[in-house]
Amino acid sequence: MLPLIAINALVVLGPSLLAVYYSFTDWNGIGTAKWIGLHNYIELAGDAEFRNALWHNILWTIFFLVVPMAMGLFGAYALTRIRRFRLLFRVAYFLPYIVASVITAAIWENLLSPDVGIGEVLHLNFLGSQTLALPTVAFVNNWAWWGFLVVVFLAAMQGVNPNLYEAAALDGAGPFRQFWSITLPSIQPTFMFLGLMTIIWSFLSFDYVYVLTQGGPAGATDVLSTLLYREAFASLRAGYASAVGMVMALISGVVVAAYLVIRKRKDWAV
């Protein structure tokens, strides 16, 4: 355990503690930092850009809790019920996950292009429109993500005791009933854990937004991590950016704590 603690302290904990300190200063990322107390946090509370980004993170979280989860559960459940080609489907679904985000972004930017792609056919400017940009970026991100959930859920579902299904089938339960009353409860811990990770990752989400829209158009896809990046490196306000990071960490901390409480009540092992 010691090597892990040492390496983690060196790479994550130490620098993070420094960032905690910087969040109470007016540091510009370059020179010396002056202690300004809670000033950054007070400013954050009244910052419309921050609220806008936070709101997008919340929408993003909801999207990723619903769409990929549903696709993952459906894909996995359907795969447990077919006899042939299961391996083929499983591998195919997983492939987008191994593609780097920069490549995924390049693929979809071209596919959705308003000049030559789907955007031209549908007369929609997916990444230019205020209303479509955020769902579009989430959609592209999801394309690379849901297949991973299929594989994980499938693994979990294969551990369900087959006798339960047989008994249910004897009782005349159809596939949907079986899914609700047997599959879902049986994989609940996996399901909850992936929900937890989805929330944590949704608040960290950066790559796809950065590569596809840089938070634009006009802040329509701005999320906390792109705001942080901009404050730190374009506005030269590293102290303020650290405060944004602290709030992000705090939100995730609360989510983890809530998960651990539920876990304890329900008596799951992590």
Binding site: S16, A19, F203, L204, F206, S225, L228, G245, G253, V256
Partner: peptide
């Protein structure tokens, strides 16, 4: 769950 961008400089 800490954003990497935050502690990049330190």
């Amino acid at each position: 769950s800490l954003p990497t961008q935050m502690f990049l400089v330190p």
